[in-house]
Amino acid sequence: MSDNGILRVVARFLIPLIMLFGLYIQFHGEYSPGGGFQAGVVFAAGWILFALIYGLDNALKVISQRAMYILAAAGVLLYAFVGLLGVAMGGRFLDFYPLLPSPHAAQQLGIITVEFGVGVTVATVVMLIYTMFARRKSEWEAVLREDSDP
């Protein structure tokens, strides 16, 4: 697939736009439709398009598999940490009001932070699942090649 010039050019044009749109619905989710889940998926879709066109190995140079595990866990932990921060500052779990003196700013800070955590987790988990399946294919082919010429 990577040999096709049209695909390469179109992908090179589209991938930044897809990723930018992902970031837009991540950080503009409070004002327009969007949020962490959608943003994570769209962002990961941009990465997967890159992996489809330029090969999985090149895509894994952008973000290694190890970084994916770490970020996936970090996103969820960020969410829980914001919740616990509310407890530590004298509120209830996932209560954002104590974070800042102004209630509106506190809520917005809390919402943006947890949505960011969700977005990071979703994006990296989707990338991770794709990597697993794509890598499985090449592993199988290697095993079967061994099989056919003993």
Partner: peptide
């Protein structure tokens, strides 16, 4: 009034 977030869905989901 509670949080000044125009997108109600985001407000409900995240807060």
């Amino acid at each position: 009034p509670d949080m000044g977030v125009p997108n109600m869905v985001a407000a409900v989901l995240a807060s």
